[in-house]
Design a protein around this nucleic acid. Structure first.
Length: 701
DNA sequence: GTAAGTCTAAACAAAT
DNA sequence: CATTTGTTTAGACTTA
């Protein structure tokens, strides 16, 4: 816990230091497109630096304000006190199109303090804000391109006063637009503030990693406006005017220019009004629906892209209608939202891993390019050979090679440091460390989901206790590949897992060692701390009556008394509706995870999800996964808690062998006595292999 | 507040 | 004798 908060603080500092957090995707887009326009790296670097300076100044000012006005708002509740990892760095919250980060959404969903109507309204606001910001950023990008173009023209044609004027005008427009972006962020902050006031978001007092919320809480838009002026004004002494393209500082020019884009007028007129009203007005008055069609992340190619939906909507209005009717705020949508959050978290984790891999690759290439005689690093060779890295990471590689081509100078350091800073070293215990010194200091990126936040290890392990009794078979079948490769603790009890392992075996019986092997084979999580979980397995085998030990010639095997296993749950399932609801949401939460991940990967044309990273799963569609899961839960809850998986009879695998001495044998279910004969299963794993500290390469299967 | 279920840790004994 | 397997107990945590 302390470590997490520490790293977060550090990462926040790093954002301020280099001024280029993960929120610079806009800049990167600009850079990429500029490159394709044939511009020289020097110009790109100049604009990039200007942008960085601007962001740096703004960040510093924000930090200053935060320090001066410590947040004293809503007291965080007890639960969130234990989860500092939920805090959101300002850079992420400010610039990501999601407007509210998954962590914040998770807070909202977990607390469930609002009525569905309130949440609906908030979500609509959220949606409108998101759209608006995307449009603004698009516009900003275009303005950047235009400026770049003019700069290029000027360089070739010499400096003419008229062009300078034009250029200044464009830069002024850009500034005005940046101002609108800032005001957009103010709207978001107001939005967040609304959430806070309604108890949706809990803020920890004086928490430095929550500058956004602190800012929103402590300032009114007018103050932000003043801050902006101060920030921009502080640079006017430098007198770096916009026509000096070599050190172009967009934050310096006159804000009071009259050449403001239309959208800015719209925003300016309403920025200080009530957030909801302005949002609605913006949505109504801004550009046509076609733009939404292009921008709405849930709509594309005439299809609703809500996870698991894929409903065909001919036009955008019909899509909106569909969205509001089919995906209103209910348990199902909430569960799907949670699934999506988990998907995002996994993707971020994967991204961090791949970025670290890229860092290693780049370091390796850099060494080779500068020191051709340097001996190859064996660890890196492992990385390359095992992970097919070359093919998979073209985009990152593009950035990296661009950096290398720039000679690894200061201009490209932002990209490189970003790459490095978003790597998560401690999350990769089995990943080879960077063989050479990193080009820039590796710090914890603010958007990176750490291992401890993803993996339910340690003190938070009991968080998933509400999932104890969820059905395992269908879930496990769908997420098999996921659990094999992701070091995520499966949300099932030991008893459920043992039962699953035994029932999966051809003879419905396993020796203890085979059970061990099944655990390590099926779950990456159980490739560590073998002593602990093996003890737990033995403990469960002994403790639960549903596990029956059967002696045979070669020793003993364990079987499942399905009737006993089923006995444990009905009264609990059929009990409170709350539990049913919990199971429903939890079920939907964890089950389609892998499928959602796969679908997300496929949809985004990300080739990352390869055999190396996540196994070689069959691409089940997310739609089917969610539908099946939700339907399965409904069947489950309506059938009085039978957790038999589809296609598997509850009586299947039932063995009534009374080997155990049960002092209180109330068994009245004398099923067919099925004496097991022999257990001749050659273990798939070396018997003596210890997974305690030795991760297993799953390719060995 | 209590009971039930679960997990972790540990001690111990028997079997291999 | 060391390791594995199996049993039991205890404490902590979460949830109903």
């Amino acid at each position: 816990m302390m470590q997490e908060s520490g790293t977060e603080t550090k990462s926040n500092d790093s954002v301020i230091q280099n001024g280029a957090g993960p929120d610079n995707h806009l800049l990167e887009c600009t850079l990429r497109e500029s490159r394709s326009n044939g511009e020289t790296p020097l110009e790109v670097g100049a604009v990039e630096l200007a942008h960085l300076q601007q962001q740096q100044a703004l960040q510093a000012a924000r930090q200053l304000l935060i320090n001066q006005q410590p947040f004293s708002g809503i007291k965080a509740n007890k639960r969130n006190d234990k989860h500092p990892s939920l805090q959101v760095p300002v850079s992420v919250a400010m610039m990501t199109p999601q407007v509210i980060t998954p962590q914040q959404m998770q807070q909202i969903l977990q607390q469930q303090v609002l009525t569905p109507q309130q949440l609906q309204v908030l979500l609509q606001q959220q949606q409108a804000l998101m759209l608006q910001q995307q449009q603004l950023q698009e516009f900003y990008k275009k303005q950047q391109e235009q400026l770049q173009l003019q700069l290029l023209q000027q360089q070739h044609a010499g400096k003419q006063p008229k062009e300078q004027q034009q250029q200044q005008q464009v830069a002024t427009q850009q500034l005005a637009f940046q101002q609108q972006l800032l005001q957009m962020q103010q709207l978001q902050q107001q939005h967040l503030l609304t959430l806070q006031r309604q108890g949706l978001l809990s803020i920890q007092p004086g928490q430095p990693t929550l500058p956004l919320q602190s800012l929103a809480q402590g300032m009114i838009p007018a103050e932000l406006q003043q801050l902006w002026k101060e920030v921009t004004g502080s640079h006017t002494a430098d007198d770096v005017v916009c026509n000096n393209h070599s050190t172009l500082d967009l934050s310096t020019t006159c804000v009071s220019s009259t050449a403001q884009p239309k959208t800015s007028l719209l925003l300016n007129s309403q920025a200080s009004t009530n957030g909801q009203a302005s949002v609605l007005t913006l949505k109504r008055e801004s550009s046509s629906h076609e733009e939404y069609t292009h921008n709405h992340p849930l709509y594309g190619h005439g299809v609703c892209k809500w996870p698991g939906c894929e409903t065909i909507c001919e036009d955008f209005p019909s899509f909106l209608k569909h969205l509001n009717s089919e995906h209103a705020l209910d348990d199902r949508s909430t569960a799907q939202c949670r699934v999506q959050m988990q998907v995002v978290q996994q993707l971020e984790l994967q991204l961090s891993k791949d970025k670290e891999r890229l860092q290693a690759m780049m370091s390796h290439l850099h060494v080779k390019s500068t020191e051709p005689k340097a001996s190859p690093q064996p660890q890196l060779c492992t990385t390359f050979g095992r992970e097919n890295g070359w093919i998979c990471y073209s985009q990152q590689l593009e950035e990296g090679i661009t950096g290398i081509l720039k000679g690894l100078n200061l201009v490209s350091s932002a990209t490189l440091s970003k790459t490095a800073s978003e790597a998560s070293p401690q999350s990769l215990p089995h990943t080879p460390t960077t063989p050479t010194a990193p080009l820039t200091p590796i710090t914890q990126g603010p958007s990176v989901i750490t291992t401890t936040s993803i993996h339910n290890v340690g003190p938070i392990r009991r968080r998933y206790s509400d999932k104890y009794n969820i059905p395992i078979s269908s879930d496990f079948a769908q997420n098999q590949e996921f659990y094999k490769n992701a070091e995520v603790r499966p949300p099932f009890t030991y008893a459920s897992l043992i039962r699953q392992g035994i029932l999966e075996s051809p003879e419905k019986q396993l020796t203890l060692n085979e059970i061990y092997n099944w655990f390590t084979r099926q779950f990456a999580y159980f490739r560590r701390n073998a002593a602990t979980w093996k003890n737990a397995v033995r403990h469960n085998l002994s403790l639960h009556k549903c596990f029956v030990r059967v002696e045979n010639v070669k020793g003993a095997v364990w079987t499942v008394d399905e009737m006993e296993f089923q006995k444990r749950r009905p009264q609990k399932i059929s009990g409170s509706p709350t539990l049913i609801k919990n199971i429903q949401t939890s079920h939907a939460y964890c089950s389609p995870l892998s499928a959602a991940l796969q679908a997300s990967m496929a949809e985004n044309s990300l080739p990352l999800y390869t055999t190396a990273s996540m196994g070689n799963p069959a691409l089940n569609s997310l739609a089917n996964a969610i539908r099946e899961d939700l339907n399965g839960v409904m069947e489950h809850t309506s059938s009085n808690g039978s957790d038999s998986s589809p296609g598997r009879s509850p009586m299947q695998g039932m063995h009534q062998v009374h080997v155990k001495e049960e002092p209180l044998d109330h068994d009245d279910n004398d099923g067919p006595l099925s004496l097991v004969t022999t257990a001749n299963h050659s273990p798939d794993f070396d018997r003596d292999r210890d997974y305690e500290d030795e991760p297993v390469n799953d390719d060995m299967e």
